[in-house]
C-alpha cells in the first residue's frame, strides 16, 4: 500500500504545481478540481472519511464551481494567458519554509493526540461519531463561529452587488431552454440530491456525514435548480430566504443561551444532547445550503447576458 500512497502524494504535488504555476487560468481551475479529488483520496487513506467527504464536496466541488464561474465571468480567453514567470526571491523564501516544515513534520512522531479522551467522553456527548461529537458538542463554540464566518462571506458580497444592495435575485441571469436537457436534468436530480443530503445529515450522528456535508449537497442541488431555471434564484428581498440564511446560527446561539439555564454556556444536558444536536444540525444544514448557494451564485448582476 505504501507504493500507492507515494504515487498519490506525487500526483497531488504534481497537480498542485500545475494548478499554481501552469499556463492558462481555466486549466489552473481544472487542475485545482482534480487536486481536490486526489486530496480526498488521501483523506480516505488517512482513515478520515468525514474530512474526505468535506474536502471533495466543499474543497473540490463548491470552490471549483466558484472559480469556474469566476473564470467564465472574467471572460478572458485562455490563449493569450502567459505562464507566470517564476519570482525567484519568493521561491527561495517558500523553499526555506518548506524545508522547515518538512523537517518538523519528519521529527514529530504522531502520538495518540486527544483520541483516547474523546473516546472516553463520547457516550456523554449524545452522538456516536467522534468527529460530529467534537464539532457539535465539545467544540460547539468553534462551529457556531464557523457558521457566522459563512454568514460574513455572504454579507461581504452584499455591497458588491450592482446597486450596492442585494435586493434582486443572486447571480447572473440564467437562460436554459425550457424543454432542453439541462432543465430536464434539473428536474430529475434535485429530489435524489435532497434524499442524499438529508441522509448525510442523519447519518452524521453515527457515521461520516453531518451538517456541512449535507448542506453542501443541498446547496449543489439548489444551484442546479437555479441554473435549470426550475426555481428563481434566492435573493435578499424575500424575507423567507433571509430567515433561512439566519436560522442555523440563530438556533445554535439560542441553544447556547438556553444552556445557561442548566449548566453553562452552550451546554446540552446529556439526556437530550442527541435531540438538541440534531435540531441544531437541521437548522444549520438549511442555513449552510442557502449560504453556499448564494456564495456560488454570487452577487446579482443585472442585465449581463449569460
Amino acid at each position: 500500500m505504501a507504493v500507492f500512497d507515494l504515487l498519490l502524494c506525487a500526483l497531488i504535488l504534481l497537480v498542485a504545481v500545475a494548478a499554481i504555476v501552469g499556463k492558462g487560468l481555466f486549466r489552473a481551475v481544472v487542475f485545482f478540481v482534480i487536486y481536490g479529488v486526489l486530496l480526498s483520496l488521501a483523506w480516505v487513506r488517512l482513515d478520515a472519511p468525514d474530512v474526505a467527504l468535506a474536502e471533495v464536496a466543499i474543497g473540490a466541488g463548491l470552490t471549483g464551481v466558484l472559480l469556474l464561474g469566476a473564470v467564465g465571468r472574467l471572460a478572458r480567453s485562455d490563449a493569450d494567458e502567459p505562464a507566470e514567470p517564476i519570482d525567484w526571491p519568493v521561491a527561495v523564501a517558500a523553499s526555506v519554509v518548506a524545508a522547515l516544515l518538512v523537517g518538523a513534520a519528519i521529527k514529530i512522531t504522531p502520538g495518540t493526540g486527544l483520541e483516547p479522551e474523546v473516546r472516553a467522553v463520547l457516550t456523554r456527548t449524545g452522538v456516536e461519531n467522534p468527529v460530529t461529537a467534537i464539532l457539535m458538542n465539545l467544540r460547539a463554540w468553534d462551529t457556531l463561529l464557523e457558521s457566522m464566518v459563512l454568514i460574513t462571506a455572504v454579507i461581504g458580497l452584499w455591497p458588491l452587488a450592482q446597486g450596492g444592495d442585494w435586493m434582486e435575485p443572486a447571480g447572473p441571469a440564467h437562460h436554459a431552454q425550457p424543454g432542453g436537457v439541462l432543465s430536464g436534468f434539473g428536474r430529475l436530480l434535485p429530489p435524489v440530491a435532497l434524499l442524499v443530503g438529508v441522509y448525510l445529515l442523519w447519518a452524521g450522528a453515527s457515521q461520516p456525514g453531518g451538517a456541512f456535508q449535507g448542506g453542501t449537497v443541498l446547496a449543489a442541488a439548489g444551484v442546479l435548480c437555479v441554473m435549470a431555471g426550475v426555481v428563481r434564484a434566492p435573493g435578499m428581498a424575500a424575507p423567507a430566504w433571509r430567515l433561512a440564511l439566519v436560522a442555523g446560527p440563530a438556533v445554535f446561539a439560542a441553544f447556547g443561551v438556553a444552556g445557561l439555564a442548566w449548566g453553562g454556556f452552550l451546554t446540552f444536558p446529556e439526556a437530550w444532547a442527541k435531540g438538541a444536536i440534531l435540531t441544531i444540525e437541521m437548522a444549520l444544514t438549511l442555513s449552510i445550503a442557502v449560504v453556499l448557494a448564494l456564495l456560488v451564485l454570487g452577487p446579482p448582476q443585472a442585465g449581463e447576458a449569460r
Partner: peptide, 15 residues
Amino acid sequence: PVPQALIITGIVVAL
C-alpha cells in the same frame, strides 16, 4: 478525531 473536526471547520472557513 480532533484534527478531523478542526479540518472540517477549516475547510468551510477557507471556502
